[in-house]
Design a protein around this nucleic acid. Sequence first.
RNA 1: GUGGGCGUAGCUCAGCUGGUAGAGCACUGGAUUGUGAUUCCAGUGGUCGUGGGUUCAAGCCCCAUCGCCCACCCCA
Length: 426
Amino acid sequence: MQEQIQAIRGMGDVLPPDSALWQHVEATIRSVLLDYGYQEIRVPIVERTELFKRSIGEVTDIVEKEMYSFDDRNGMSITLRPEATAGIVRACMEHGLLRNQRQKFWSTGPMFRYEKPQKGRYRQFHQFDVEALGFTGPDIDAELIIMLARIWRLLRIEHLSLQINTLGTTESRVQYRADLMAYFREHFAQLDEDSRRRLERNPLRILDSKNPDLQGLITAAPRLTQYLDAESEAHFDGLRALLDDAGVPYVVNPRLVRGLDYYGRTVFEWVTDRLGTQGAVCAGGRYDGLVEHLGGEPTPAVGFAIGLERLVELYALAGLGAPSRVPDVYVVAVGEGATRCAFRIAESLRDGAAALRVETNCGGGGFKAQMKRADRSGATVAVLLGEDEVSSGTAVVKPLRTELEQTTVPMAGLADAIAVHLRSRP
RNA sequence: GUGGGCGUAGCUCAGCUGGUAGAGCACUGGAUUGUGAUUCCAGUGGUCGUGGGUUCAAGCCCCAUCGCCCACCCCA
Protein backbone atom coordinates (compact mmCIF):
# COMPACT_ATOMS: atom_id res chain seq x y z
CA MET A 1 0.00 0.00 0.00
CA GLN A 2 1.18 3.46 -0.82
CA GLU A 3 2.08 5.92 1.88
CA GLN A 4 -0.67 8.42 2.56
CA ILE A 5 0.41 11.85 1.47
CA GLN A 6 -0.33 14.42 4.13
CA ALA A 7 -0.56 18.17 3.97
CA ILE A 8 2.64 20.04 4.61
CA ARG A 9 3.34 20.86 8.23
CA GLY A 10 1.67 24.04 9.35
CA MET A 11 -0.46 24.34 6.21
CA GLY A 12 -4.06 23.62 6.97
CA ASP A 13 -7.23 23.02 5.00
CA VAL A 14 -10.39 25.01 5.59
CA LEU A 15 -13.40 22.71 5.45
CA PRO A 16 -17.13 23.20 5.78
CA PRO A 17 -18.67 24.35 8.01
CA ASP A 18 -15.65 26.52 8.88
CA SER A 19 -15.36 27.76 5.32
CA ALA A 20 -18.72 29.50 5.79
CA LEU A 21 -17.26 31.39 8.74
CA TRP A 22 -14.32 32.45 6.60
CA GLN A 23 -16.66 33.59 3.85
CA HIS A 24 -18.63 35.72 6.24
CA VAL A 25 -15.59 37.30 7.88
CA GLU A 26 -13.93 37.99 4.56
CA ALA A 27 -17.08 39.40 2.98
CA THR A 28 -17.61 41.73 5.93
CA ILE A 29 -14.08 43.07 5.79
CA ARG A 30 -14.15 43.48 2.03
CA SER A 31 -17.40 45.35 2.14
CA VAL A 32 -16.15 47.84 4.74
CA LEU A 33 -12.91 48.46 2.88
CA LEU A 34 -14.77 49.15 -0.35
CA ASP A 35 -17.17 51.47 1.48
CA TYR A 36 -14.24 53.51 2.78
CA GLY A 37 -12.91 53.92 -0.74
CA TYR A 38 -10.11 51.37 -0.71
CA GLN A 39 -9.48 49.46 -3.92
CA GLU A 40 -8.28 45.95 -4.34
CA ILE A 41 -4.78 45.30 -5.58
CA ARG A 42 -3.59 41.79 -6.44
CA VAL A 43 0.08 40.99 -6.46
CA PRO A 44 2.00 37.74 -6.90
CA ILE A 45 2.56 35.33 -4.04
CA VAL A 46 6.18 34.94 -5.16
CA GLU A 47 8.66 37.79 -5.44
CA ARG A 48 12.38 38.08 -5.78
CA THR A 49 14.06 37.27 -2.50
CA GLU A 50 15.91 40.55 -2.67
CA LEU A 51 12.67 42.51 -2.31
CA PHE A 52 11.93 41.05 1.10
CA LYS A 53 15.50 41.32 2.26
CA ARG A 54 15.56 44.99 1.45
CA SER A 55 12.13 45.88 2.76
CA ILE A 56 11.80 43.77 5.87
CA GLY A 57 15.44 44.04 6.92
CA GLU A 58 18.34 41.64 6.71
CA VAL A 59 18.65 41.11 10.43
CA THR A 60 15.05 40.23 11.21
CA ASP A 61 13.88 36.77 12.19
CA ILE A 62 11.65 36.67 9.14
CA VAL A 63 14.47 37.14 6.68
CA GLU A 64 17.08 35.21 8.57
CA LYS A 65 15.23 32.00 9.21
CA GLU A 66 11.57 32.07 8.24
CA MET A 67 11.44 32.62 4.50
CA TYR A 68 10.49 29.98 1.97
CA SER A 69 13.17 30.75 -0.59
CA PHE A 70 14.01 28.75 -3.70
CA ASP A 71 16.07 29.08 -6.82
CA ASP A 72 13.99 28.99 -9.96
CA ARG A 73 15.16 27.24 -13.11
CA ASN A 74 17.31 30.19 -14.05
CA GLY A 75 19.00 30.23 -10.68
CA MET A 76 17.20 33.35 -9.47
CA SER A 77 16.32 33.32 -5.80
CA ILE A 78 12.58 33.73 -5.30
CA THR A 79 10.55 33.71 -2.09
CA LEU A 80 6.99 32.92 -1.07
CA ARG A 81 5.85 36.21 0.42
CA PRO A 82 6.08 36.33 4.23
CA GLU A 83 3.96 39.50 4.28
CA ALA A 84 2.15 41.65 1.76
CA THR A 85 3.48 45.17 2.05
CA ALA A 86 6.70 44.64 0.12
CA GLY A 87 4.94 43.26 -2.94
CA ILE A 88 2.29 45.97 -2.95
CA VAL A 89 4.88 48.74 -2.68
CA ARG A 90 6.90 47.10 -5.44
CA ALA A 91 3.83 46.99 -7.68
CA CYS A 92 3.01 50.62 -6.96
CA MET A 93 6.51 51.71 -7.88
CA GLU A 94 6.67 49.51 -10.94
CA HIS A 95 3.44 50.91 -12.36
CA GLY A 96 4.06 54.51 -11.38
CA LEU A 97 1.11 54.58 -9.01
CA LEU A 98 2.92 56.83 -6.57
CA ARG A 99 3.86 59.64 -8.95
CA ASN A 100 2.20 62.57 -7.30
CA GLN A 101 -0.68 60.33 -6.39
CA ARG A 102 -2.30 58.93 -3.33
CA GLN A 103 -3.49 55.37 -3.19
CA LYS A 104 -5.71 53.44 -0.83
CA PHE A 105 -5.36 49.72 -1.44
CA TRP A 106 -6.39 46.46 0.10
CA SER A 107 -5.31 42.95 -0.69
CA THR A 108 -5.74 39.49 0.73
CA GLY A 109 -4.24 36.06 0.37
CA PRO A 110 -1.84 33.54 1.84
CA MET A 111 1.51 34.36 3.42
CA PHE A 112 4.29 31.92 4.23
CA ARG A 113 6.67 31.77 7.14
CA TYR A 114 8.76 28.77 8.14
CA GLU A 115 7.99 28.81 11.85
CA LYS A 116 7.12 26.12 14.32
CA PRO A 117 3.34 25.86 14.14
CA GLN A 118 1.18 26.41 17.18
CA LYS A 119 -2.22 27.86 17.92
CA GLY A 120 -2.67 30.97 15.81
CA ARG A 121 0.63 30.49 14.05
CA TYR A 122 0.91 28.57 10.82
CA ARG A 123 3.38 28.22 7.98
CA GLN A 124 0.73 29.22 5.51
CA PHE A 125 -1.58 31.82 6.94
CA HIS A 126 -3.86 34.47 5.53
CA GLN A 127 -3.99 38.19 5.92
CA PHE A 128 -6.16 41.07 4.90
CA ASP A 129 -3.77 43.85 4.11
CA VAL A 130 -4.47 47.55 3.74
CA GLU A 131 -1.98 50.16 2.58
CA ALA A 132 -2.49 53.90 2.23
CA LEU A 133 0.30 55.56 0.30
CA GLY A 134 1.03 59.26 -0.14
CA PHE A 135 -0.75 60.47 2.98
CA THR A 136 1.28 62.35 5.57
CA GLY A 137 -1.11 63.48 8.26
CA PRO A 138 -2.53 61.53 11.19
CA ASP A 139 -5.98 61.60 9.61
CA ILE A 140 -5.31 58.53 7.50
CA ASP A 141 -3.81 56.70 10.48
CA ALA A 142 -6.99 57.43 12.38
CA GLU A 143 -9.16 56.36 9.46
CA LEU A 144 -7.51 52.97 9.33
CA ILE A 145 -8.06 52.38 13.02
CA ILE A 146 -11.63 53.67 12.99
CA MET A 147 -12.34 51.46 10.00
CA LEU A 148 -11.01 48.46 11.89
CA ALA A 149 -13.19 49.29 14.86
CA ARG A 150 -16.15 49.24 12.50
CA ILE A 151 -15.17 45.83 11.13
CA TRP A 152 -15.00 44.38 14.64
CA ARG A 153 -18.34 45.95 15.45
CA LEU A 154 -20.02 44.50 12.35
CA LEU A 155 -18.60 41.09 13.14
CA ARG A 156 -19.68 41.57 16.74
CA ILE A 157 -16.21 40.64 17.89
CA GLU A 158 -15.36 41.51 21.44
CA HIS A 159 -12.33 41.01 23.64
CA LEU A 160 -10.13 43.02 21.31
CA SER A 161 -8.21 45.94 22.70
CA LEU A 162 -6.28 48.59 20.88
CA GLN A 163 -2.75 49.59 21.77
CA ILE A 164 -1.03 52.46 20.06
CA ASN A 165 2.37 54.06 20.21
CA THR A 166 4.63 56.31 18.23
CA LEU A 167 8.17 55.44 17.29
CA GLY A 168 9.00 58.96 16.14
CA THR A 169 11.16 59.62 13.13
CA THR A 170 13.97 57.39 12.05
CA GLU A 171 16.51 59.96 13.25
CA SER A 172 15.08 60.23 16.73
CA ARG A 173 14.79 56.47 16.97
CA VAL A 174 18.40 55.98 15.99
CA GLN A 175 19.47 58.22 18.84
CA TYR A 176 17.11 56.51 21.25
CA ARG A 177 18.25 53.11 20.15
CA ALA A 178 21.86 54.02 20.78
CA ASP A 179 21.13 55.37 24.24
CA LEU A 180 18.98 52.37 25.11
CA MET A 181 21.71 50.02 24.02
CA ALA A 182 24.19 51.87 26.16
CA TYR A 183 21.85 51.70 29.13
CA PHE A 184 21.33 47.96 28.86
CA ARG A 185 25.03 47.39 28.32
CA GLU A 186 25.65 49.06 31.65
CA HIS A 187 23.28 46.59 33.25
CA PHE A 188 24.32 43.64 31.14
CA ALA A 189 24.72 41.38 34.15
CA GLN A 190 21.03 41.67 35.00
CA LEU A 191 19.81 40.74 31.51
CA ASP A 192 18.49 37.29 30.77
CA GLU A 193 19.59 35.24 27.81
CA ASP A 194 16.88 36.43 25.43
CA SER A 195 17.49 40.05 26.21
CA ARG A 196 21.22 39.72 25.69
CA ARG A 197 20.54 38.34 22.29
CA ARG A 198 18.15 41.18 21.51
CA LEU A 199 20.59 43.79 22.75
CA GLU A 200 22.60 44.03 19.57
CA ARG A 201 19.94 43.38 16.99
CA ASN A 202 16.79 44.96 18.32
CA PRO A 203 17.19 46.52 21.75
CA LEU A 204 13.68 48.00 21.63
CA ARG A 205 12.30 44.52 21.97
CA ILE A 206 13.85 44.13 25.39
CA LEU A 207 11.21 46.58 26.56
CA ASP A 208 8.66 43.95 25.56
CA SER A 209 10.14 41.25 27.77
CA LYS A 210 7.72 39.25 29.87
CA ASN A 211 10.41 38.30 32.38
CA PRO A 212 9.30 39.72 35.77
CA ASP A 213 12.90 39.97 36.93
CA LEU A 214 13.56 42.59 34.28
CA GLN A 215 10.60 44.85 34.92
CA GLY A 216 12.49 47.14 37.31
CA LEU A 217 15.30 47.58 34.86
CA ILE A 218 12.88 48.22 32.02
CA THR A 219 10.87 50.78 33.94
CA ALA A 220 14.02 52.75 34.70
CA ALA A 221 15.22 52.62 31.09
CA PRO A 222 15.23 55.70 28.87
CA ARG A 223 11.85 56.35 27.29
CA LEU A 224 11.22 56.88 23.63
CA THR A 225 8.85 59.74 24.44
CA GLN A 226 11.77 61.75 25.74
CA TYR A 227 13.36 61.56 22.32
CA LEU A 228 10.32 62.42 20.26
CA ASP A 229 10.67 65.33 17.89
CA ALA A 230 7.96 67.96 18.01
CA GLU A 231 6.53 66.96 14.66
CA SER A 232 6.08 63.33 15.58
CA GLU A 233 4.55 64.37 18.85
CA ALA A 234 2.06 66.60 17.07
CA HIS A 235 1.30 63.76 14.65
CA PHE A 236 0.59 61.40 17.49
CA ASP A 237 -1.55 64.00 19.29
CA GLY A 238 -3.52 64.44 16.10
CA LEU A 239 -4.17 60.74 15.85
CA ARG A 240 -5.31 60.55 19.44
CA ALA A 241 -7.67 63.45 19.05
CA LEU A 242 -9.35 61.81 16.08
CA LEU A 243 -9.64 58.50 17.90
CA ASP A 244 -11.11 60.28 20.93
CA ASP A 245 -13.65 62.05 18.72
CA ALA A 246 -14.62 58.75 17.14
CA GLY A 247 -15.02 57.14 20.53
CA VAL A 248 -12.50 54.42 19.79
CA PRO A 249 -10.87 53.42 23.07
CA TYR A 250 -7.14 52.76 23.12
CA VAL A 251 -4.20 52.37 25.42
CA VAL A 252 -0.92 54.10 24.77
CA ASN A 253 1.71 51.44 25.21
CA PRO A 254 5.19 52.99 25.12
CA ARG A 255 6.67 49.52 24.86
CA LEU A 256 4.84 48.65 21.67
CA VAL A 257 7.43 48.27 18.93
CA ARG A 258 7.42 46.43 15.64
CA GLY A 259 9.36 43.48 14.40
CA LEU A 260 9.81 44.90 10.95
CA ASP A 261 12.42 47.56 10.38
CA TYR A 262 10.51 49.93 8.19
CA TYR A 263 7.99 51.17 10.74
CA GLY A 264 8.15 54.69 12.19
CA ARG A 265 5.82 57.07 13.96
CA THR A 266 2.41 55.44 14.41
CA VAL A 267 2.30 51.80 15.39
CA PHE A 268 -0.78 49.99 16.62
CA GLU A 269 -1.96 46.55 17.49
CA TRP A 270 -5.31 44.96 18.30
CA VAL A 271 -4.76 42.19 20.79
CA THR A 272 -6.93 39.60 22.50
CA ASP A 273 -6.41 37.37 25.49
CA ARG A 274 -8.75 34.70 24.12
CA LEU A 275 -6.43 32.98 21.69
CA GLY A 276 -3.58 31.88 23.89
CA THR A 277 -0.19 33.36 23.38
CA GLN A 278 -0.59 34.49 19.77
CA GLY A 279 -2.89 37.35 20.65
CA ALA A 280 -2.12 39.89 17.94
CA VAL A 281 -5.10 39.84 15.59
CA CYS A 282 -4.24 42.96 13.66
CA ALA A 283 -1.14 45.09 13.59
CA GLY A 284 0.03 48.03 11.59
CA GLY A 285 1.72 51.34 11.47
CA ARG A 286 3.53 53.91 9.46
CA TYR A 287 6.43 53.12 7.15
CA ASP A 288 7.28 56.48 5.65
CA GLY A 289 10.80 55.38 4.77
CA LEU A 290 10.10 52.18 2.87
CA VAL A 291 9.39 53.46 -0.62
CA GLU A 292 12.54 55.54 -0.65
CA HIS A 293 14.46 52.67 0.83
CA LEU A 294 13.35 50.55 -2.14
CA GLY A 295 14.59 53.17 -4.55
CA GLY A 296 11.50 55.31 -5.07
CA GLU A 297 10.63 58.90 -4.29
CA PRO A 298 10.11 59.57 -0.58
CA THR A 299 6.49 58.58 0.02
CA PRO A 300 4.64 58.51 3.30
CA ALA A 301 2.72 55.33 3.89
CA VAL A 302 0.69 53.56 6.54
CA GLY A 303 -0.99 50.20 6.64
CA PHE A 304 -2.03 47.18 8.60
CA ALA A 305 -2.49 43.45 8.35
CA ILE A 306 -5.26 41.37 9.84
CA GLY A 307 -4.41 37.77 10.72
CA LEU A 308 -7.40 35.93 9.31
CA GLU A 309 -6.86 32.61 11.08
CA ARG A 310 -6.82 34.45 14.38
CA LEU A 311 -9.76 36.66 13.53
CA VAL A 312 -11.88 33.74 12.31
CA GLU A 313 -10.99 31.80 15.44
CA LEU A 314 -12.06 34.75 17.58
CA TYR A 315 -15.26 35.03 15.58
CA ALA A 316 -15.91 31.31 16.01
CA LEU A 317 -15.47 31.64 19.76
CA ALA A 318 -18.29 34.17 19.83
CA GLY A 319 -20.52 31.40 18.46
CA LEU A 320 -22.39 33.68 16.09
CA GLY A 321 -22.12 31.28 13.18
CA ALA A 322 -22.42 32.39 9.60
CA PRO A 323 -25.48 33.45 7.66
CA SER A 324 -26.74 30.15 6.36
CA ARG A 325 -27.67 29.74 2.75
CA VAL A 326 -30.20 27.00 2.34
CA PRO A 327 -32.21 26.12 -0.76
CA ASP A 328 -35.82 27.19 -1.09
CA VAL A 329 -36.66 24.00 -2.91
CA TYR A 330 -35.29 20.48 -3.02
CA VAL A 331 -36.44 18.48 -6.01
CA VAL A 332 -37.01 14.80 -5.33
CA ALA A 333 -37.20 12.64 -8.44
CA VAL A 334 -37.52 8.88 -8.60
CA GLY A 335 -37.08 7.17 -11.94
CA GLU A 336 -35.38 8.17 -15.15
CA GLY A 337 -38.33 10.07 -16.60
CA ALA A 338 -38.78 11.94 -13.36
CA THR A 339 -35.11 12.87 -13.24
CA ARG A 340 -35.24 14.42 -16.69
CA CYS A 341 -38.39 16.26 -15.73
CA ALA A 342 -36.76 17.41 -12.49
CA PHE A 343 -33.87 19.01 -14.31
CA ARG A 344 -36.23 20.96 -16.56
CA ILE A 345 -38.33 22.10 -13.63
CA ALA A 346 -35.34 23.11 -11.52
CA GLU A 347 -33.87 25.30 -14.23
CA SER A 348 -37.16 26.99 -14.93
CA LEU A 349 -37.71 27.71 -11.23
CA ARG A 350 -34.23 29.26 -11.11
CA ASP A 351 -35.04 31.33 -14.19
CA GLY A 352 -38.41 32.39 -12.83
CA ALA A 353 -39.28 35.80 -11.44
CA ALA A 354 -38.73 34.58 -7.90
CA ALA A 355 -35.20 33.33 -8.78
CA LEU A 356 -35.58 30.43 -6.39
CA ARG A 357 -32.64 28.64 -4.87
CA VAL A 358 -33.15 25.08 -6.03
CA GLU A 359 -31.23 21.93 -5.18
CA THR A 360 -31.89 18.92 -7.36
CA ASN A 361 -31.43 15.43 -6.04
CA CYS A 362 -28.46 13.76 -7.62
CA GLY A 363 -27.25 10.27 -6.98
CA GLY A 364 -30.55 8.43 -7.21
CA GLY A 365 -32.24 6.76 -4.28
CA GLY A 366 -35.83 5.97 -3.39
CA PHE A 367 -38.34 8.44 -2.03
CA LYS A 368 -37.32 7.74 1.52
CA ALA A 369 -33.64 8.36 0.94
CA GLN A 370 -34.29 11.44 -1.15
CA MET A 371 -36.67 12.88 1.42
CA LYS A 372 -33.97 12.48 4.01
CA ARG A 373 -31.59 14.46 1.85
CA ALA A 374 -34.27 17.05 1.23
CA ASP A 375 -34.69 17.52 4.95
CA ARG A 376 -30.99 17.77 5.62
CA SER A 377 -30.51 20.29 2.86
CA GLY A 378 -32.52 22.73 4.93
CA ALA A 379 -34.89 23.43 2.05
CA THR A 380 -38.23 24.99 2.85
CA VAL A 381 -40.23 22.81 0.50
CA ALA A 382 -39.70 19.60 -1.40
CA VAL A 383 -41.03 19.07 -4.89
CA LEU A 384 -41.74 15.37 -5.48
CA LEU A 385 -41.73 13.77 -8.89
CA GLY A 386 -42.42 10.11 -9.66
CA GLU A 387 -43.86 8.06 -12.46
CA ASP A 388 -47.42 9.16 -11.62
CA GLU A 389 -46.63 12.86 -11.64
CA VAL A 390 -44.69 12.66 -14.88
CA SER A 391 -47.52 10.89 -16.66
CA SER A 392 -50.18 13.26 -15.30
CA GLY A 393 -48.11 16.40 -15.74
CA THR A 394 -48.25 17.32 -12.05
CA ALA A 395 -45.89 17.70 -9.12
CA VAL A 396 -46.28 17.26 -5.38
CA VAL A 397 -45.32 20.25 -3.26
CA LYS A 398 -44.53 19.26 0.29
CA PRO A 399 -43.65 21.81 2.96
CA LEU A 400 -40.78 20.63 5.16
CA ARG A 401 -40.79 23.32 7.85
CA THR A 402 -44.48 23.72 8.60
CA GLU A 403 -47.32 21.40 9.46
CA LEU A 404 -49.25 22.31 6.32
CA GLU A 405 -50.48 19.52 4.06
CA GLN A 406 -48.73 18.65 0.83
CA THR A 407 -50.55 19.47 -2.38
CA THR A 408 -50.56 18.10 -5.90
CA VAL A 409 -50.51 20.81 -8.53
CA PRO A 410 -50.30 20.96 -12.31
CA MET A 411 -46.82 21.81 -13.59
CA ALA A 412 -47.92 25.28 -14.68
CA GLY A 413 -48.96 26.18 -11.14
CA LEU A 414 -45.81 24.87 -9.46
CA ALA A 415 -44.07 28.20 -8.90
CA ASP A 416 -47.18 29.71 -7.34
CA ALA A 417 -47.72 26.72 -5.06
CA ILE A 418 -44.13 26.96 -3.88
CA ALA A 419 -44.46 30.69 -3.31
CA VAL A 420 -47.35 30.10 -0.90
CA HIS A 421 -45.16 27.93 1.29
CA LEU A 422 -42.16 30.23 1.12
CA ARG A 423 -44.32 33.07 2.44
CA SER A 424 -45.38 31.04 5.46
CA ARG A 425 -41.82 29.96 6.14
CA PRO A 426 -41.14 30.06 9.87
C1' G B 1 15.25 26.77 17.00
C1' U B 2 14.25 24.94 22.68
C1' G B 3 10.95 22.32 26.05
C1' G B 4 6.28 19.48 27.37
C1' G B 5 1.68 16.64 25.92
C1' C B 6 -0.84 13.71 22.24
C1' G B 7 -1.90 10.51 17.63
C1' U B 8 -7.57 4.01 18.20
C1' A B 9 -13.54 3.71 12.65
C1' G B 10 -15.56 9.99 8.51
C1' C B 11 -16.29 12.79 13.68
C1' U B 12 -16.02 12.67 19.40
C1' C B 13 -13.84 9.18 22.34
C1' A B 14 -13.45 4.14 25.59
C1' G B 15 -9.91 0.11 25.79
C1' C B 16 -8.04 -2.17 33.54
C1' U B 17 -1.33 -4.31 35.70
C1' G B 18 0.77 -6.28 27.44
C1' G B 19 -3.28 -11.77 25.39
C1' U B 20 -4.48 -9.97 18.10
C1' A B 21 -10.41 -3.87 19.11
C1' G B 22 -15.62 -1.22 21.19
C1' A B 23 -19.54 3.01 22.04
C1' G B 24 -22.12 7.37 20.47
C1' C B 25 -22.79 10.45 16.16
C1' A B 26 -22.61 10.01 10.85
C1' C B 27 -23.58 6.77 6.62
C1' U B 28 -26.61 2.52 4.21
C1' G B 29 -30.90 -0.65 4.58
C1' G B 30 -35.46 -2.19 7.12
C1' A B 31 -40.22 -1.48 10.61
C1' U B 32 -46.98 -3.66 4.52
C1' U B 33 -45.24 -2.49 -1.38
C1' G B 34 -43.96 6.25 -3.57
C1' U B 35 -42.55 10.58 1.32
C1' G B 36 -38.07 13.62 5.89
C1' A B 37 -36.42 15.62 10.99
C1' U B 38 -38.67 11.30 16.61
C1' U B 39 -38.32 5.95 17.91
C1' C B 40 -36.80 0.72 17.16
C1' C B 41 -33.76 -3.03 14.48
C1' A B 42 -29.72 -4.42 11.38
C1' G B 43 -25.44 -3.41 8.44
C1' U B 44 -20.94 -0.97 6.09
C1' G B 45 -16.54 0.92 8.10
C1' G B 46 -10.17 0.37 11.70
C1' U B 47 -3.36 -3.72 9.13
C1' C B 48 -4.94 1.11 16.55
C1' G B 49 -0.17 7.82 12.34
C1' U B 50 4.19 5.26 9.98
C1' G B 51 8.71 2.12 10.33
C1' G B 52 11.68 -0.79 13.32
C1' G B 53 12.60 -3.41 18.17
C1' U B 54 11.48 -6.27 22.97
C1' U B 55 8.05 -10.51 23.96
C1' C B 56 5.14 -16.95 23.24
C1' A B 57 1.94 -12.51 22.63
C1' A B 58 1.72 -5.06 21.84
C1' G B 59 -3.30 -0.33 20.68
C1' C B 60 -0.96 -0.71 25.37
C1' C B 61 6.68 -1.31 26.60
C1' C B 62 11.38 0.80 23.80
C1' C B 63 13.59 3.61 19.55
C1' A B 64 13.00 6.43 15.21
C1' U B 65 9.97 9.21 12.00
C1' C B 66 5.63 12.12 10.39
C1' G B 67 1.70 15.07 12.13
C1' C B 68 -1.29 17.71 15.81
C1' C B 69 -1.61 20.51 20.44
C1' C B 70 0.69 23.82 24.31
C1' A B 71 4.53 27.07 26.11
C1' C B 72 9.31 29.73 25.10
C1' C B 73 11.00 32.56 20.94
C1' C B 74 8.78 35.41 17.23
C1' C B 75 4.72 37.42 15.11
C1' A B 76 -0.70 38.25 11.81
